[in-house]
């Protein structure tokens, strides 16, 4: 291919230069916009000055990620002891505790501490009955309106998918729980609401839910606020994505299998194409 190579190479340099300029321009734009976005947009009087960043590490991240089952169960204890007063967990059922290595009898016992609505009886009445493992965790409120009326108009969101439903994923819940602080100078916090450095808009309707020793762990771990934050976050991460371990471990095996198969396919391709020479 001799004739066009010189012209091609002459034009290749300016063509490449154009390409690189566009790429650099795009990179500059991307950089600026990230800086803007991270700040949550325009700074206001309520923007916190010093936001403590707690870089927590989670065992379920990474290629071999898995849940700390003991921590997740402690997180369940935190949830049922504090959060469940206002927040529902509609996709969690007691039998899910088996994933956290809780023995069947213990699960039955835990379920039996709760009541759910039974099927209508012969007189057509809907009466409460003791929950069994196949039941879903009961909601503290009958419906959204009831939830709002008791919580100053704000509906405490269901927490089953909270870890997947926010841009900061598994760091959202711990950041909120950690984020309560004094409002900066000039920031007015309405009556009945609180200042939270990590909540979008900084004004949250939820009172700080955790304090040291708010609950007592069954396994005797000291229930410091940080411990409870870590545990309940682990639990909620599990509830949002119970199949994470299966996904990562199965996925790993399939990727390895496919890598080997792809290499074999490549060698086969090369072998087949050798016939052309």
């Amino acid at each position: 291919m001799g004739t066009q190579s010189r012209i091609q190479s002459l034009l290749a340099v300016p063509a490449l230069a154009v390409k690189r300029t566009v790429q650099a321009g795009a990179a500059l734009l991307i950089g600026t916009s990230i800086a803007l976005a991270a700040g949550g947009g325009e700074p206001t009087v309520c923007t916190p000055k010093d936001v403590p960043h707690n870089d927590r590490h989670w065992g379920f991240q990474g290629i071999f990620g898995h849940y700390d089952k003991k921590a997740a169960f402690r997180g369940f204890e935190v949830f049922r002891g504090t959060c469940a007063a206002c927040h529902s967990l509609k996709f969690f059922t007691f039998r899910n505790l088996a994933d956290l290595d809780v023995p069947e009898d213990a699960i039955k016992g835990i379920a039996a501490e709760y009541e759910v609505m039974a099927e209508p009886n012969d007189d057509g009445e809907v009466l409460p009955r003791t929950a069994i493992p196949s039941d879903y965790f009961p909601s503290p409120f009958a419906n959204e309106k009831a939830a709002a009326s008791v919580n100053g108009g704000a509906v405490p969101p269901d927490l089953s998918l909270m870890v997947k439903a926010r841009a900061s994923f598994e760091n959202h819940v711990p950041n909120i729980l950690d984020g309560y602080m004094d409002a900066p100078e000039g920031c007015e916090v309405p009556e009945g609401k609180y200042y939270n450095a990590h909540y979008p808009g900084y004004i949250i309707s939820m009172a700080p839910p955790l304090a040291d020793d708010a609950i007592e762990y069954k396994d005797g771990t000291k229930a410091t606020k940080e411990q409870m934050i870590k545990d309940v976050s682990e639990f909620l991460a599990y509830v949002a994505e119970p199949k994470l371990e299966e996904r990562k471990s199965t996925g790993f095996k399939i990727v390895i299998f496919l890598l080997i198969l792809t290499v074999l396919l490549y060698l086969t391709k090369k072998q087949v194409w050798r016939k052309l020479h």
Binding site: I260, L261, L264, Q271
Partner: peptide, 9 residues
């Protein structure tokens, strides 16, 4: 090679 690839596929 062909057999290994075929079997694995």
């Amino acid at each position: 090679l062909y057999m290994a690839t075929g079997a694995m596929s």
